[in-house]
Amino acid sequence: MAIYTLTKIDNGYNSYKQIIELYQTHKDTFFDTIDIHLDQWFGANMAAVLGGVLDLFIDNMNTINLFIENSETKNVLMRNGFLSHYGYERVIDDRHSTIEYLKIKPTDGRFFNSYIIDEFINRSEMPEMTGALKKKIAESIYELFVNAKDHSGTKFIYTCGQVFPVKNKIEFTIADTGKGFQRVVNDALLTNFTAGQAIKWAIKDRNTTKNDITGGIGLAILHEFIKLNKGRLQIISGNGFYEFDEEGERIHKFPYDFPGSYINVSIRTDDDSSYALKEEIDSNDLF
């Protein structure tokens, strides 16, 4: 039996690093029992990141036990449905602050559509937001989903989020355990980019790894939206950590590789930007 502890997991570099180290420690463990203790805090949206990693351990026929001392953390992870994948009872989200933990196949697009409608668009207890902002958030999440679906070759896509009514923000994470940005970009471009460079290349407008069909707009649109919203975008893939917020762009390197890609967005819900065009485009001038 193996025991591992993750301590104070939020959305910072060190939290991702701890989860990478957990993966490194046990990626070659087979037919064992791995007890993981979530010590102190564990940010609800990070369940998408941990869920992907734990599924890789389960693929190796390991048994996973999660232990959570902190009652608040345990309550949140029970309410968002994450712990029900690991032997805990599912409880109703009576505080209406979680965005459900979802593990779906990339081909389950229709189910993902219903999830976004239920969790974002038609949800009455969301913080007050303009219609334009709500639409922008949903569009961004859809762009992330199709990006993971079309490029990663992952078996499953993992999503999870949390609403912070007092702080006026939403945290949302979409994760996959597929090829990762570095491999996808370098294989297509025959380059030798680092993971950080591959992420930077992929978020630039019009950069696409596809050869026959256009692409490369979805991540650029997300980046522009986060900039206008004064939110935060994090992309973790391989050993690359990319972060963009009001203070600018930062890239760091992890000592080991993450399996797949993890995109986390923090969106300000008190943003009243109209997101409307300054100048209207004549629909006759579209083509």
Binding site: T208, I217, A276, S283, F287
Partner: peptide, 26 residues
Amino acid sequence: SLEVVNIDQDDVRRIKRVTDTAKAFY
């Protein structure tokens, strides 16, 4: 030979972005 109708300005902008990207790409 192509026209769009019943569409809001935000989506028109998105189409314009896609068509401009496609022209440059090909």
